[in-house]
Design a protein around this nucleic acid. Structure first.
Lengths: 156, 156
DNA sequence: TATTGTTATACTCTATAACTATA
DNA sequence: TATAGTTATAGAGTATAACAATA
């Protein structure tokens, strides 16, 4: 008798497991990133800036789901290390367009290489195929309950 | 140089997605738990105590992957609200055996009901079957890279 | 001496409010 | 007035060191 999910709606709760895995990833990522002078938040920001370069700071705050005030200090740290640059928007001088520097791009590449090893270890319990399935499910979950959906419901 | 293994599985990186989902879960859980006088850490501890009642504090620290000093203050808060009890171990008087009280069990049940709604919303992008698959994968990942595996590797 | 629990402390993360400069 | 960015600050989460009681 294999456990077949005949159950309709009340599935197992994934929240605790997600939190647990995120915890492990964060703890190990910190150790790996520390020698590079980076912390987890730095890396997330750098990654977003590479993928969606030239974002305004408030857009970054939404993508990162961080408070905009904390984005300021985060970018300050990255700018001090010459990893990012802030440029005034020509069309709207209130905005700062943030972009990755060459130094930042190179450091990001090094960090991602180190982080790949962390992920390989944390997800070592899964096969490559399973990891791919997991990735698909996670992405589907994050996209569906994205910013739009988050803004729709009152208790957000 | 050393010949690399034939790695045909550099899968997508799940880390950022896990972190992102955990973030959403935490933010919404906080709103839902606040009216009950609880915070996410409280709930995790109560859940563990119900499932593995009578644990010593240091065991709790390992399960929760928290520093043991923080477990102390966490339990202090729960004890103040009469949600848990600390009893001296008869066999080893250094140990405190922590157990859920009736009050704690009832509050935990209410909190879990509220949290189920949060999860339903956060994972609304997935079907029931997909959520079940996700649960299985997450559980497999967390179990395989458990405490033992974590202790094995040096850069832990 | 080693272990369990505890206290004190510092550092990071996060959110709120008030301010500036632009629009 | 409304928005983008900033500053100051307070609360929560986390980790390290030193200590007391017990083994």
């Amino acid at each position: 008798m294999t456990s077949l999910p005949v159950v309709n709606q009340p599935p197992h709760r994934c929240g605790a497991l997600v939190d647990h895995l995120a915890r492990r990833l964060r703890l190990r990522s910190e150790s790996v990133l520390a020698p590079l002078g980076l912390r987890p938040r730095h890396l997330i920001a750098l990654t977003v800036l590479r993928d969606q370069g030239g974002s305004a700071q408030q857009d970054l705050a939404k993508i990162l789901e961080m408070d905009s005030t904390n984005v300021v200090s985060l970018l300050n740290e990255l700018e001090t290390e010459n990893l990012i640059e802030r440029r005034r928007s020509p069309t709207d001088r209130r905005r700062h367009l943030v972009e990755l520097t060459d130094v930042g791009a190179k450091l990001l590449a090094r960090a991602e290489f180190a982080l790949a090893a962390v992920e390989d270890e944390v997800f070592s319990g899964l096969s490559g195929e399973q990891r791919e399935t997991l990735y698909t499910l996670l992405q589907q979950a994050t996209n569906k309950t994205g910013v739009e959906a988050c803004r729709e419901t009152p208790p957000c």
